[in-house]
Structures are given as structure tokens and as C-alpha cells.
Design a binder for these strands. Sequence first.
RNA 1: CGGGAUAUAGCGCAGCUUGGUAGCGCGCGUCGUUCGGGACGACGAGGUCGCAGGUUCGAAUCCUGUUAUCCCGACCA
Length: 595
Amino acid sequence: MVLKLSTTFLRTLREDPVDAEVASHKLLVRAGYIRRAAPGIYTWLPLGLKVLARVEAIVREEMNAIGGQEVHFPALLPRDPYEQTGRWTEYGEGLFRLKDRKDADYLLAPTHEEMFTLLVKDLYNSYKDLPVYLYQIQNKYRDEARPRAGLLRGREFIMKDSYSFNIDDEGLDEAYMAHRGAYLKIFERLGLEVIPVFAQAGAMGGSKSEEFLHPTAIGEDTFVRSAGGYAANVEAVTTVVPASIDYANAPAFEVVDTPDTPTIETLVAAANELRPRESGAWEAKDTLKNVVLAVTDPEGNRQLVVIGVPGDRQVDLKRVEATVGAPLGIIGEVQVEAASGEDLAKHPELIAGYIGPGNGLDQAVLGTEGTSGITYLVDPRVVSGTSWITGANEKGKHVFGLVAERDFGFDGTIESVNVLEGDPAPDGSGPLRTERGIEMGHIFQLGRKYAEALDLRVLDQNGKLKVVTMGSYGIGVTRAVAALAEAYHDENGLAWPKQVAPADVHMVVTGKGPELLEAAEKLASELESAGLEVILDDRPKVSAGVKFSDAELIGIPTIVVVGRGLAEGVVEVKDRATGERRDVKVEDVVAELSA
RNA sequence: CGGGAUAUAGCGCAGCUUGGUAGCGCGCGUCGUUCGGGACGACGAGGUCGCAGGUUCGAAUCCUGUUAUCCCGACCA
């Protein structure tokens, strides 16, 4: 059916909505694709639904192609499964919670790991049933602290989420790679550039994880990439460990009076004044900053840890939370915060601004072997033989030329700091630069976290119960629509790539006279017969100028103008994206456009 | 949760300083003219001025409280 604009539920706006900041939001509202219903919650109008359906269709085809089977869960779910995995609590305020008339707790699902796991447990119990890949395209709900940028970060959004169930790790690897391949195909077909970047699995549990980021200046995620092709989320970059340095000829360390130098900045200035270096001025990266943190384990036990990092780096507490468990031998999630004044008061040997590992191996302060007894972890850049300016554990004094291994030891190394522009890529592919991106998809090897929590086990070849291993894989479908609008627009409006456009041809009728409309309707139905979807702007009493600008705002790839040329037997065919226009004989239009 | 701003017709805004019962542009309706780049004229419909209290003869305007929304940050598969 030709979609006639005269009867389509559509109102385009001349002005940008005042609450919209990013182009995709402004244009999708102005062109009549979506309307805001509540903060971060949007209504889809007819044109918007068509785009959404086309995006979903591509996702569906590629998921089916790797053997995915589509199911559909409710968005409204009972509390119990989420209680079993701990996420009822862990999700905190991000979860929409509600009660039924009997006062029982329900939630609007933020993601469906639990339900998929339970569904498989419900129906399957043998290794012979595996592997199985299930997916759905469904609404998710997250009570974001601050929804923003229209469809890009909403509180209700459509996600394709799939889950793989395998009997062993090899199977999980296969499932993961199959999804990875499908995702690359999906984004390629959508016309959305994405970069798979290494990510930290974090709260989702599991091990291997990659995000698919669409690079754009308005992206909320920062990632790094090298010219040689390395790409990673900033939290997941591993530090390149420098080679050890031979310290046989290194000068002995020296304790220097450095009054009023409690910060790295003041210390660097003092160093250049008191002990200028011939090979160039001292910099922040020549100092060793020792940060005292308080780590709380899942049982609530609090302990202090000192992390030594080059002075030009910032310790990232989120990163420490993810990495500090292993060296401390803590299993489970830990909480990390800066040590309080109370914590420090218990350790008078730690003098704020002048903390150091100790002046010489025989005078160790930091470390389980030191006088403080506090675990001392250092950045991987602190390798044997590196020489540092650091605190001398005495107010107003620093020690210069303190050499790792010769003069101080530590209990282990830890990835704890931010990445800086220019850092080397871990795979040797060159210096890293930072970029912004939108997270379009995320794939995880969940492993057995959910299967264990919900007791999903099947019998193996030996008749023994075995915990199933899982992967979870998400694509933000709503977000993909927004990202496409973001990537494909110009100052006049949207300009969809044809595979996701709400139609193939936007036909505009200009001028008066019944023969023009009749000719347009005839041509439109011929195009439809040839398999093209047509929107026909047959609105009476609407000026040509309005129709032209609406056509450009709406952004269908091909615009056909039936007007004054008809007398000579031609219509104008215009490419929305390039602006190129040419006259085509009426009888040739179908052949040209369906080519 | 911290900081900033806003709330008046479907949309975008003015009016508030100095209180006197609401206005502009777009959009919408009718009629006429116009008809290939956001046309013109005439007439018209549409608003408890976010909400609640207070001051006042009288409140969109002043005072108090409250709610909502947007932006920046924190947070975020």
C-alpha cells in the first residue's frame, strides 16, 4: 500500500524541540518519528515504527542465521529470580520496582539473564539438548539517574538480547565467536560503523567481553585505539610493562629536605629547584605517588591498601574495585574508597603528602613486611631498577633516586590508573589516542555465574550433573535507530540509508490539476508493484516548498517530484543524500529506481 | 546525588523589574486568491499563566512552599 501523507498520522515541526540537544533527538521529533512520553520514555509514531521494524528485521535475520531462536519474555517479572542471583539488591535504584495488589514485589526487567537461565532449566536437562542460542527483541527498563540525548539513553528501550548455553568452555568460545560475527554483520548491514573494543566484564560477571562502539563525538563512552588496530575501553587497557633496568651503577638514594611539598605539583617544582637534572626537567611521571585506600570485602571487613603509581597518573577507584581482589586474595565484589582521616590516624607512620615505601630495604614502611604492615601494591610501570622521587615518611622530606628492588619492595602489582593519550598499545601497535563512542552492543562470556546461582545443570556423557556455561549478547535496537539518525543527517534533515529508511521513495506532487495527482498515484502503484515502498505526498493545499522541505526532513533516500515536468513526460528524481537531481521519463522511472 | 536553568495556547517565545484580569510568530479551522523551494488576505477556535498557600480591592507579575522538566557533573548493559 502506498502511504499517502494526506491521511498519515504525521505532523512535522518547523522548529527544534526545546528539550532536545543532539541532532538525532531534534530531527526524529521534528520529522514526526517519535514523541516524548516521559523523561527517557518515547512514543513511536508510524514513520518511526517503520525504521524500528527494519532495524529489527536485520537483527533478526542475522541472529537466525547463526541458529538463534526467538522467544519473548514478559517485561514485568517477579522478584524471586533476581533475588536468587543477588541482582534485586545489586541493581539498586536503577531497577523499576512495583508491587501487585497482594503487595508482592515485581520489577520491570533491566535485562533477562535470570529468565533465560530458568527457562532452559525448566525444559532441558541433558548435554544432548545443548548448545542452544535463544534471543528476544524486547523492552528493557532502567531507571537511569539522568536519561539524556533522546533515544540514546532512555529509561525504556528496546534491546535484542541473546543467551548461549553450552556444556563446556570450548562451546562457549564458539557461541561467543558466532555472536561476534553476527554482530559485525548486523552493524555492517545497518550502515553503522562500529569498533569492537575490549571491555571489562564488571558487574555482569564472567570473563571475556567486548563492546561494539560507534565512534562519534557525542558518545558517552571513552575508548582508546592505536593506528595499528588495537581498541579498548579505557577501563580495560592493560599496561605495557617496561623492561627492567640494571641498577648496578645507579647512584645511592638521597633524602632531601622539601618543605611544603605535599602535592606532586609542588614536589616536581622543588625537585627542579633543589636537584636539577641534566637530562631534562623532572616531571610528574618521575615521582612515585602513594595513595592510601580502604578496601571492604563482601563480609564487611575493612583493610587499608597503599597503591604506588607514577605521579602523572590518577588512581581510578572503579578500576581498583575490579582488580584489587586478586592480590588481596578476596573473592567476590569489593568496595574501595579513599582512606578516611580515621583510617590514617591509626597509622601515625603515614604522613600525608610524604608517604613512601621506606628509605631502604631495611627500613621498609609500606608492605606487609614493613613497619606499617599495610599491603603495598604498585603500578606495573614500577619495575625493577626504576628510580623514583617519593615520600621519605617524614614531614617536609622526600627521597630522591629510590630504586625499585634495590631500595624498596612491594607485595604485588595492580592495574589501577587511567590511560593517557600517547600510552603504548599493549599489542605493540603504536601509541593510543582517546575517542568517544556510543555503545551499540556488548557481548559477554558469562561463564557459570548465573547457571550456578540458579542451579542450571544438565547430565553429561557420563551421567553426571554439570553446570552449564553461558554467554550473553546485547544490541541496543532503539539506540541503533538514534545512532543511525545521528550518523545520517544534514542541515535539512534526516537522510536514511535505504536498508533502514521508512520507505524507498518519497513522491511529491506539486502544482494543481487532477492529472498530476492521477499520474503520481499511477506511478506510485507501479513502483510498489516493482517491490518499492512509496510515500506519496498528496496533501492538497500544501505549497510545494513545504512538501520539499518535509521530504528532506523525513529523509527517504529517493525523492520523486511529479509536477511541471509532467507535461513533457518527465519527473524529477532526487537523491536525498547527495542532492543530485535529474529528469527521468515517466515510463523509465520504475526501471531506474528498482535497478 | 551535587551545580545551573526553566515552567504562560499544539510548538517556539514575550509579558513579570514598576500588580489592573494575557499577547506575538508558527501551527490549526472557514472563505477567497496563489500553486516548483517553508505564499497572501479576511474571519475564527484554542490558555484554571506547573501546583498549593499567602499578601492585596485586585496576582502570570510580589512572598512562602512544593512538583516537574532540561543542561553540566557523579553514576550507568
